[in-house]
Nucleic acid binder design. Structure first.
Length: 367
DNA sequence: AACAAGGGTTTAG
DNA sequence: TCATCTAAACCCTTGTT
């Protein structure tokens, strides 16, 4: 009765699949979606690739030049720059469609969402399966896109179910088969355990999710943090009480790659446009920030940041310019921070909602 | 002891 | 020179109340 039924919907190789829809003739070719940094012709990284390209080892994050090498025998490989606007428009239509299946909805990213079907499918996985199947066919009908869907008792397990069969999957993980299904999996398959954590867990003799589920909590706390260690162990037991619900954005950022590594770039040319964009986004979301920060990725690819808390929340371009230029100035003047930057950016956080009440009005106007 | 501020790391898509 | 971009969660240290 208190059990939930949650489904995870994950649009397959989303950016590349969107491009396949736009140009069906590339469907059987390797398709690689790239973020070009603008340094040299091919500098940058792969955002995503279709399965034809993945079969050759091209995956998210690899340098574009490496992807070219991996695909050098495939004369027909297609390399395209990301077209965020186009993907966003498709995503918005699909999210709207998904929302119609449950009031209890959470979009996690441009290509992923959770729906809580508890009230619609009360404890009947066959009903949930029918709904999931309908979702898949409607997305196909409307946008010609495949997705992978997972169904289980919480977000964690629904996501793992969706991940287990891709692309175009539909996987149910029923309560009675949870332990037998996830325990044998390598611990890196647990969402939240990435390459670094997996490596450290291997050193502790934790190879599978089942190993982690049984592992001593105190040692995990000491090793991975007082909260995180035990939390990961609890995930390994299939426990996840996070509700399906939309969450407020907590930060906004923009970062760019400089043409050349330098500690003397033009603030006006490189940073001001980023601030204009951030300020615009703050205003259009009725938010103001209490903290303004800068980000520097050094030529050695180390991340550095500096931030300042304001007395008053702001959405003003001028204020963000003043504060961040000061932060850059003191960053590059500080002792050992004269090392050249490869990438620079701005981040605003500690966002507060100004509400839709314009200044000068007050809550009492509503009564 | 509890909390805020600031900086770093890891994860994920 | 091979190494994008955005965002969340968490960790730790330091300083203040």
């Amino acid at each position: 009765m208190n059990d939930r039924i949650v489904i995870a919907v994950d649009l397959d190789y989303f950016f590349a699949q969107c491009e396949e829809v736009r140009r069906p003739e590339i469907q059987r070719k390797p398709v690689v979606i790239c973020v070009y940094s603008g340094r040299t012709g091919d500098s940058g990284a792969v955002s995503t690739a279709n399965y034809v390209a993945r079969k050759k080892g091209v995956k998210s994050g690899v340098p574009i030049s490496v992807a070219r090498k991996l695909l050098e025998d495939s004369k027909d490989a297609i390399f395209l720059p990301v077209d965020q606007e186009y993907y966003k428009a498709i995503s918005e239509r699909i999210m709207e469609l998904l929302r119609s299946f449950s009031y209890n909805f959470e979009q996690v990213s441009i290509d992923e969402a959770f729906l809580d079907l508890s009230s619609v499918a009360h404890n009947d996985y066959n009903v949930a399966l029918e709904i999931a199947s309908k979702i898949k066919s409607q997305i196909m009908e409307a946008e010609r896109l495949t997705c992978s869907v997972g169904i289980s008792k919480n977000k964690l397990l629904a996501k793992m179910a969706a991940d287990s069969q891709k692309p175009d999957g539909l996987t149910v993980l029923r309560p009675e088969s949870i332990a037998d299904t996830i325990n044998p999996l390598p611990v890196g398959k647990l969402p939240g355990v990435g390459t670094k954590t997996e490596k450290r867990m291997e050193e502790l003799g934790i190879h599978t999710i089942g190993d982690l589920a049984l592992f001593n909590r105190e040692i995990l706390a000491a090793e991975f943090g007082r909260n995180l260690g035990p939390h990961l162990a609890s995930l390994a037991c299939g426990i996840d009480n996070e509700p399906v619900q939309e969450r407020e954005r907590q930060q906004l950022g923009r970062i760019i790659t400089l043409k050349h590594d330098t500690s003397d770039f033009s603030f006006a040319e490189e940073i001001r446009p980023l601030i204009a964009d951030i300020s615009k986004r703050l205003r259009s979301s009725n938010s103001r920030c209490k903290m303004i920060g800068i980000i520097v990725i050094t030529s050695a690819l180390k991340t550095k940041s500096r931030a300042k808390t304001l007395d008053q929340p702001t959405d003003s371009e001028e204020v963000i310019i003043a504060v961040s230029s000061e932060l850059f100035k003191s960053y590059f003047e500080s002792d050992q921070e004269g090392i050249p930057a490869r990438r620079v950016g701005i981040r605003v956080s500690e966002l507060v909602d100004t509400g839709h009440v314009k200044s000068g009005q007050s809550l009492s106007d509503y009564f």
